[in-house]
C-alpha cells in the first residue's frame, strides 16, 4: 500500500507535464470568465423580470430561476451541447453544431444566472422605498433610478455573496472536460492515456485545485468580512 502511496505522491510526472496542464488551467479560467459574464447579465435580467409590474414577466422570471437553480450542471452541459443545436437546426432548417467552449459557457452561465438572479432580487428588494420615492420626485426615469440608485447599492450589498458564487462557478468549470473542452482535467486524462499512470496525475490535479481554490476562498472570506464591516455607507 505504501508503494502506491509513494507513487501517487510522486509528483514529478505532474511537474513534467506542467506546460500542458497549465494550458488546461487557463481554459478553465477562460470558461469561467465568459460564463460569469453570462451569469451576471442574464441573472440581472431575470431578477428585473421577477419584480416587474406585469405578471407574465414575473412568471417568466420565476420559471427561469426555478429551472436553472434546480438543474444539475452536467445535464445542462450535455443538453446544451447535444440537444440545443438540434432544436435550433430544426427551426432554421440547417445543421447547427456548437463548439464545446460555447456550450460550456452557455450551460454554466445559465445555471448560475439562477443563483445570481435570486441574489440580485433580494438585494433590490432590500433597498428602502424612500430612496426610490426621492428619485421619482426629482423626475428621474425608471432607468436612471435603476442604474444610479438601485444597482450601486445592490452591488455593494451583494459583493461577498457574489464572490462566493464565483468561486463555486470556477470549481464547476472542471466538468467541461466531459464535452472535450481542453481544460486541466481533459489534459490530465490525455496524459493518463499516454502514460498509463493515473495515480500521480489525479493526485496532482486534486492538490493543484485544492491549493488554488483554498487561496481564493480564504481571500474571499477575508474580503467579505472587511467589506461587511466598512461598506454600507
Amino acid at each position: 500500500m505504501s508503494d502506491a502511496l509513494k507513487q501517487s505522491l510522486d509528483l514529478s510526472m505532474f511537474w513534467e507535464y506542467r506546460a500542458i496542464l497549465l494550458q488546461g488551467l487557463i481554459f478553465n479560467v477562460l470558461v469561467f470568465l465568459c460564463a460569469a459574464s453570462v451569469a451576471l447579465s442574464v441573472g440581472l435580467g431575470a431578477a428585473l423580470l421577477r419584480i416587474n409590474r406585469l405578471w407574465p414577466m414575473r412568471l417568466i422570471g420565476t420559471l427561469h430561476v426555478e429551472i436553472f437553480r434546480n438543474a444539475p450542471d452536467y445535464i445542462m452541459l450535455v443538453w446544451v451541447h447535444f440537444v440545443l443545436p438540434l432544436l435550433i437546426g430544426i427551426a432554421i432548417r440547417r445543421r447547427v453544431e456548437f463548439h464545446p467552449f460555447t456550450s460550456a459557457v452557455i450551460a454554466l452561465g445559465f445555471v448560475y444566472s439562477g443563483y445570481f438572479a435570486e441574489g440580485f432580487r433580494a438585494g433590490i428588494q432590500a433597498i428602502p422605498q424612500g430612496n426610490l420615492d426621492a428619485g421619482r420626485s426629482f423626475g428621474m426615469s425608471e432607468r436612471l433610478i435603476l442604474w444610479r440608485i438601485i444597482l450601486p447599492q445592490v452591488v455593494r450589498r451583494m459583493l461577498p455573496e457574489a464572490l462566493n458564487l464565483f468561486v463555486s462557478m470556477f470549481k464547476a468549470t472542471t466538468i467541461v472536460s466531459l464535452i472535450a473542452v481542453p481544460d486541466l482535467m481533459y489534459n490530465v486524462s490525455m496524459v493518463i492515456q499516454q502514460e498509463m499512470r493515473p495515480l500521480p496525475l489525479y493526485t496532482g490535479a486534486a492538490i493543484t485545485y485544492f491549493l488554488l481554490i483554498f487561496l481564493l476562498s480564504v481571500g474571499v472570506r477575508h474580503f467579505g468580512e472587511r467589506w461587511r464591516r466598512t461598506s454600507m455607507a
Binding site: K171, T174, I175, P198, Y202, T203, A205, A206, Y209, S217
Partner: peptide, 16 residues
C-alpha cells in the same frame, strides 16, 4: 473536501 471540485474528487477517490 470543500475546496476540491467534486469532479476532481470523484476521479481521485475512484482511481487513486
Amino acid at each position: 473536501f470543500r475546496d476540491t471540485p467534486i469532479f476532481v474528487q470523484l476521479m481521485w477517490v475512484a482511481y487513486v
